[in-house]
Simulated scan of single mutants.
Amino acid sequence: MSEDAADATRTVMAFLKAMETLDYDRAVMLVADDCEYTNPPPIGTVTGPAGIRAVLQPFFAPTLENEFRVLRAAQSGAVVFTERLDRHKLADRWVELPVTGVFEVRDRQITYWRDYFNAATILSQWPAG
């Protein structure tokens, strides 16, 4: 694995670890100002650290604990693919969501992040609010 690929993978794993603990300050330090983050509808696309935080922080508000299990990871240069099982502990249960993520990294910052999952799987289990 080239140093660039190793850096890209380390950056993505560090980002996921920070998000797992809901350490938004640490997580967004790994995101470029022009990063494009896309989720399936109805969530859509946002840009940059502030956009990512604006989507994720309120969404994860009812979460008591998170676990992002990376089942498989692969990279090609600056592109990192992850197959994950995102687990979220709510007040009364754990919610699990299979996710595939695609990340692009430049200069140890995420410049592109797109997650693929069935939105109905998570939204049907998530508290309204």
Rank of each mutant, 00 (worst) to 15 (best):
V102W: 11
Y37T: 06
A74D: 02
F15M: 05
G77N: 10
D92K: 14
P127M: 05
G101N: 05
P41T: 12
A119R: 11
V105C: 06
A32L: 09
P40G: 06
Q109V: 11
L64M: 12
V31Y: 05
A14V: 00
V12M: 05
G129S: 09
S124G: 15
L64I: 10
L97R: 01
P42T: 10
S124K: 14
F103N: 01
A50K: 14
D7Y: 08
A73K: 08
E20K: 03
P127T: 06
L90S: 08
H88N: 06
T63I: 10
P49E: 12
E83L: 07
A78K: 10
W126G: 02
E83P: 01
F59A: 12
S124C: 11
N118F: 07
D34C: 01
L85H: 08
M1R: 11
A119C: 12
A14I: 00
D7F: 02
R84S: 00
M1E: 14
D7I: 08
E3T: 11
A50I: 04
P40E: 10
D23R: 07
R10Q: 12
F60I: 00
Y112H: 15
L56R: 05
M1N: 14
R84T: 02
F103Y: 13
G44E: 12
A6E: 14
T38D: 13
Y112G: 00
T47Y: 13
P62G: 09
M29R: 15
E20W: 01
T38W: 05
L22N: 06
Q125F: 04
H88M: 04
T38F: 08
P98G: 02
F68I: 03
C35N: 02
E104A: 05
G51S: 07
L16P: 01
V28S: 09
L16I: 05
R53T: 03
I122D: 09
Y116I: 08
G77W: 11
R53K: 11
A6C: 09
V46S: 06
F68L: 07
I52L: 15
M1P: 10
A128G: 00
A73C: 12
P49Q: 10
T21P: 03
T111P: 11
I43N: 13
M29S: 13
Q57Y: 00
V12H: 04
V70L: 01
V28L: 15
V28I: 14
P49H: 11
G101V: 03
T100I: 12
F60N: 02
C35G: 05
F68C: 01
L56E: 08
L123P: 07
M19C: 10
A50N: 13
D34H: 11
M19P: 00
W94V: 14
F15L: 13
A61E: 15
L97W: 04
P98T: 03
D4Y: 07
Q75F: 06
R26W: 00
V95A: 09
L71K: 14
V102C: 13
A18Y: 10
S124N: 15
T11L: 01
D92Y: 03
F117I: 08
A73H: 13
L90E: 09
D33A: 13
A50C: 04
F15N: 02
L97E: 05
A78V: 02
I122L: 15
A73T: 09
A128T: 04
S76Q: 12
A91M: 06
R93G: 10
R53I: 00
D33I: 06
Q57F: 00
M1V: 14
A27M: 01
R69I: 15
W126C: 06
G48K: 03
L71M: 13
L85P: 09
R114C: 13
F15G: 02
P58N: 03
